[in-house]
């Protein structure tokens, strides 16, 4: 029996390029991946933590990390396609690190170079009393596990405030996805309508 491939590979390299947070400075970010049961990383780094960056002096006020990502996954089934989860932290007025944003996006599906702008958000206190205590104690609400932002269930109880965004670029190579019968189309946006950025 001629045995064809039984798994496909998804190789992603890229970088967390930069962020826009008009209100905050001296930020660093962490990244990790969330993927389904059929998926497994075969090589590369599954999580990382960047340097602390300050805003540029010029008018653009960019926060540049230029932080590398390299990972390869294998799977038999696109269900549970990996998502990159990014969380951004920075010092508050007392010098304690607090979260400034969580965000997630699926890794691109087609071979080639892709750029993604990920909107970031932080959870909010659900009651006025909690809001007061968090203001008084100088601790703002955080997710105990940032990976919840890649999950769809149980989000109806979450209140968030969106602020800022992170720009990530990816280079994607796939292997044997077509041989296993999957058609992911080609090109990034075959019939794209322009997405308005905040």
């Amino acid at each position: 029996m001629a045995s064809g491939p039984s798994v496909f590979l998804l190789n992603v390299s890229g970088q967390i390029e930069s962020a826009e947070f008009p209100e905050f400075d001296d930020l660093y970010c962490k990244y990790s991946f969330v993927y389904g049961h059929d998926w497994a990383p075969t090589s590369g780094v599954e999580e990382g933590i960047s340097q602390i960056t300050s805003k540029s002096q010029g008018g653009k006020q960019a926060l540049v990390w230029n932080f590398p990502i390299e990972i390869t996954f294998k799977s038999t089934n696109p269900f549970g396609w990996p998502q990159i989860v990014i969380s951004v932290y920075g010092p508050d007025a007392f010098g304690n690190d607090v979260v400034r944003g969580y965000g997630a996006v699926h890794l691109p599906f087609t071979p080639g170079r892709h750029a993604r702008t990920i909107p970031m958000f932080v959870p909010e206190s659900s009651s006025r009393l909690q809001r007061f205590t968090s203001w008084f104690m100088g601790r703002r609400p955080e997710f105990t596990d940032p990976k919840v932002v890649a999950q769809g269930e149980g989000r109806e109880v979450t209140r968030v405030r969106s602020q800022g965004c992170v720009t990530v670029s990816f280079n994607v190579v796939t292997k044997d996805l077509k041989k296993l019968g999957y058609n992911t189309g080609s090109g990034d946006f075959p019939n794209a309508t322009t997405m308005s950025q905040p």
């Binding site: 269930e153 602020q163 905040p198």
Partner: peptide
């Protein structure tokens, strides 16, 4: 996968768009 759900409630900082970033994955 799941075929229905509800997103988070966003109170955005700048008031021109609400972000949910709600993942969907169905087979």
């Amino acid at each position: 996968g799941v075929v229905e759900g509800q997103t988070q409630v966003d109170h955005p900082q700048n008031d021109d768009m609400a972000f949910w970033s709600h993942p969907i994955d169905m087979h």
